[in-house]
Design a protein around this nucleic acid. Structure first.
Lengths: 147, 147
DNA sequence: CCGATTGGTCAAGCTGCTTGACCATGTTCA
DNA sequence: TGAACATGGTCAAGCAGCTTGACCAATCGG
């Protein structure tokens, strides 16, 4: 492989990720929620049964202070609540509110819609393959701004 | 496709892009250059014959002020020079210095090395396919932080 | 040849992150 | 048991990298 092709691949990855992220956010906003892209990725961690700020920080690849600020923001907008942790009095469990669930569903819808546009370009099967390869390559990579 | 899979795909894209970007930057630093990931993407635009600040801004998806600041930074570190533009006295042509070329080559090497690690995981052919699909999907997407 | 456009910079401000300090609770082990 | 250390969380301050706004010089278009 020629050298510059590797940089091209990186640029293409960034472009694809940025494109998708942007479309999802626009879709969420269009559905009546205010937010920035980070919300969706936070939701995927909070979704099942909630998580602690530290959990969230690890998932997003930021400091716990940054995660705490994000939670503040989400709470201020009514998407999440901080509850006492059942097992550990130091910790607080961050859980989605009803509105938070609604926003999560909106994000999933918007994401599915954006991906559908890709499927029209390269086929649904190829999209699935793409996803599979990527998960294989960077399983635990940071879900963060790339630069 | 189930809804949440679309968000997973996005996360995987971000993770892969972030992973690769990080590795490249580390590789460049390890080769004795100081820099941040944006440099590499700037270089790909400046590489052949230079470019104007506005060109660079479009390529990176930022304002021309931001691009100008980046050029300041690159110039301060000796990677680029601002020259008068041959055809347009308003414009200035930003060109790579010898050190800039060296850093560009280092970035390409580091990128190739990082991608090689992927080839070990999914095969070189698959990497090529991946690149092809991505270029098809988001040809002119913004080369920018995703959120 | 004059108004509108384009390339570029300066200045100020803001957002989202970081580092550092700190407190409360939990865990470990002599 | 209790002293030392580890862990979850917040508050505060600072900073990097971007934005908006204002402006100047050069070019283009009628």
């Amino acid at each position: 492989m020629q050298n510059s092709e590797a940089l091209t691949l990186t640029a293409a990855l960034l472009a694809a990720a940025g494109d998708l992220t942007q479309r999802i956010n626009e879709g969420v906003v269009a559905r009546g929620f205010e937010g920035r892209p980070a919300y969706g990725f936070a939701f995927t961690r909070l979704a099942p049964d909630g998580a602690t700020v530290t959990d969230l920080a690890v998932h997003l690849g930021v400091t716990k202070q940054a995660a705490s600020q994000l939670v503040d923001e989400l709470a201020r907008k009514g998407y999440v609540e901080r509850r006492p942790h059942p097992d550990d009095a130091r910790a607080r469990l961050v859980v989605l509110t009803e509105r938070g669930w609604a926003c999560t569903r909106a994000a999933e819808e918007a994401a599915a819609e954006a991906v559908r546009a890709w499927a029209d370009l390269i086929g649904e099967g190829e999209v699935r393959v793409l996803r599979k390869r990527l998960l294989r390559i960077a399983p635990g990579g940071p879900i963060r701004p790339a630069w």
